[in-house]
Design a protein around this nucleic acid. Structure first.
Length: 301
DNA sequence: AAGCCGGGGAG
DNA sequence: CTCCCAGGCTT
């Protein structure tokens, strides 16, 4: 709610969002993760403002053509906002349908995605699509929960196949475990005599696209001070240092679903004035990943 | 079809 | 600690 309220306060209309700089959008999104959603939302606002005269399209097909709007979101908007008879299939719906009908097709397989969408369409209440769609999702979230669902007091327990077969805890079936990759991050925080530092924007692919961070030295293992010193020798992006010291004695392990980031923060004191740098007072203006935000919070310059 | 993308909460 | 969670895009 705090994120939502700040967001709509900053961008009351689609035009406001469309004309905002991406940095402001990302700053308001900071901490939520999945930053591509913020970028897609921003891109879609521009399309709606510029190509649709500020009017959201009202059909599933047109909605789905918007960036970041896939099958679920297009169905949700079309049904909630325009009363279109489109069934929503989110994680909750997968759970309710797979259990109630006893379907063990993996929900993340091509076959499963198609099967559950068709099943959802068959059982939906077209004449009351808003309440139906929101109801089945809420039912999945509150009653037919992932763990410890309330089967004993469930109004559907007598006709639920999973209850009958004792397979509630096994459904829905999902394939593919994510394997975790270990990465070793060394953030080097330059501090000059005027308390300037250096922030860089992450570009290209991968995590935290377009967010900011301190100069990063990635390695294939944890580094000792001398090893880092060797690596940053002749590194054009870092100034020569008076001192280089490790800030966190314990390596910080920042865990994403698919990556464990073993992180060390190094304080690099320099006597150069970082003309192109960022004043420490202003670093709060930049959108940064939680890992960086947590460091900034604890570090006293 | 498989992989990638973040962070938080529950137990 | 470990386990679990979602929807869309890219490769």
């Amino acid at each position: 709610m705090p994120y939502y309220l700040r967001f709509v306060d900053a961008f009351p209309t689609v035009q406001d969002l469309a004309k905002a700089p991406e940095e402001q959008v990302l700053k308001l999104w900071q901490g939520l993760g999945y930053y591509s959603r913020a970028r897609n939302l921003h891109a879609t606002a521009k399309i709606v403002a510029n190509n649709f005269d500020g009017q959201f399209p009202n059909t599933y097909k047109e909605l789905k053509s918007l960036k970041g709007v896939g099958d679920y979101t297009a169905s949700a908007i079309a049904s909630f906002c325009f009363d279109a008879p489109e069934p929503v299939v989110d994680g909750n719906v997968y759970r309710v349908l797979s259990r109630y009908f006893g379907v063990d097709i993996p929900i993340n397989s091509t076959k499963g995605i198609k099967y559950f969408k068709e099943l959802a369409r068959e059982v939906m209440d077209s004449g009351n699509i808003r309440d139906y769609n929101q109801g089945i999702m809420e039912f999945g979230a509150v009653q037919c929960a992932p763990k410890k669902p309330y089967c004993l007091l469930c109004p559907l327990q007598e006709s639920c196949i999973a209850v009958k077969d004792g397979k509630v805890s096994e459904l829905p079936l999902k394939l593919n475990k994510t394997k975790v990759k270990n990465r070793y991050f060394n953030y080097v925080i330059p501090i000059d005599p005027e308390n300037n530092t250096i922030l860089e924007q992450r570009t290209g692919k991968g995590i935290w696209q377009n967010l900011y961070q301190f100069p990063l030295v990635e390695s294939d293992k944890n580094l000792k001070t001398e090893e880092l010193k060797l690596l940053i020798q002749g590194n054009g992006q870092l100034p020569e240092y008076e001192s280089l010291s490790l800030y966190n004695n314990e390596t910080i392990v920042h865990k994403l679903s698919h990556q464990h980031l073993h992180t060390k923060f190094w304080i690099l004191k320099t006597s150069y004035i970082l003309e192109e740098g960022t004043s420490w007072k202003k670093i709060g203006d930049f959108p940064v990943p939680v890992l960086i935000a947590d460091f900034i919070k604890t570090f006293k310059i």
